[in-house]
Design a protein around this nucleic acid. Structure first.
Lengths: 205, 205
DNA sequence: TAGATTGTTAATCGATTAACAATC
DNA sequence: TAGATTGTTAATCGATTAACAATC
């Protein structure tokens, strides 16, 4: 295990490998090679080997990687060998969709609360969850020690809500709002608003 | 205007600049500097200047950039100075949320069709749209010349659906399904599944 | 053993930063 | 004019690739 700082760009690729390996495992495949994995995710075999070797010697010359073993290791590295509690902020259409999304638990996440400031939404059930008042958010998050939030609120209120979340101890934010957030260095943000991603592709059309 | 190939990483940043500038414009601000824009998006001033200068001399020494002018130029470069028709494939919770999303039109996109294979969904209205049979998708897309699709279907059927879309002429796919898609070189894919993005951040927790 | 594939090194390639002349 | 800020160059830094000894 290399104790040096791992480049962020490598960390970005690990969940992609994990996703592809999980898929192979679901199909009953037991081993793979850097070549095969690379073809499945569109990354060179050399880069896959280099990336994985940052964390240990997980492969075998001649035979490649054991999929169950590599899955275990990648989950451990990414800390998704456990279940993280996550909150949703904003109970609009996108918040609803995330609250009902079935793909989180298998990948390390458990949505435990959803908040909104709209009185007409507070108290309503979404699956197993009940929409809570955003005024209670800071206390609820502090008390539960939650570190991860998904933001599905208008851009206009996203920065102030982020400031509140940071005060409450949140360290990771998945941001659906179309705005760059200013956060302290130890807080991570991932941007996931659809229009921004579409606008990257139109350049090439 | 530089006719050389622009690095993809620069193209990735342009929509982020566009988003921040749009926000400044909404707040009535007329000019900005590479310094100020950089602070707002978390990128160095030197890099902002370098990125923008790939496409022309859009700033003025001493005063910086005119926001309306730079907005125009960036929209032109990214080809979002027009309205692109977009389809949604999959009328589940995420498809619904996207169909109702109000943030597309201002940023160059118009959702014109939504498809599903579930007979109980076909014919139902979502806002102005009616869910159509996915069996008709290839013909509908070909006839309308649509180039952009958003995929909100299960991973299991994502690759085959992608193959259909590519056959129909689609060149840009925003993929919400947790799977790497294999597409020809001239087709772009952006990955936007929430669990993969969350898994990147847990590494740092 | 022979074939396959890893982990790693060195070379190449590309991106970022610092600095500053040009100029508004 | 003086101050500010761009656009661009050169230097630095970091990532990717190619190649191959090690070894399963």
């Amino acid at each position: 295990m290399n104790a040096e700082k791992i480049p962020d760009i490598i960390i970005t690729r690990l969940p992609v490998y994990l996703r592809a390996l999980q898929r192979m495992a679901d199909n009953g495949i037991k081993t793979t090679s850097s070549q095969e994995l690379g073809e499945s995710v569109g990354i060179s075999a050399a880069q896959i080997r280099k990336d994985i070797s940052q964390f240990g010697e997980f492969g075998k010359q001649g035979t490649g990687y054991s999929i169950p073993y590599l899955l275990d290791k990648l989950r451990e590295i990414l800390k998704v060998d456990r279940l993280w509690d996550v909150i949703i902020v904003g109970a609009g259409d996108m918040g609803h969709a995330l609250a009902r999304y079935q793909g989180f638990v298998d990948r390390g996440f458990n949505v435990t609360m959803i908040f909104d400031n709209d009185k007409s939404k507070i108290g309503h059930k979404i699956g197993d969850l009940t929409v809570e008042d955003i005024a209670d958010m800071i206390e609820r998050v502090k008390a539960s020690g939650i570190k991860i939030a998904m933001l599905t609120i208008p851009a206009k209120v996203a920065q102030e809500t982020t400031d509140t979340l940071v005060k409450a101890g949140v360290k990771a934010i998945l941001n659906y709002a179309p705005i760059s957030l200013n956060v302290p260095e130890d807080v991570k943000v991932q941007y996931i608003d659809p229009a921004t991603h579409l606008q990257k592709m139109t350049y090439y059309l």
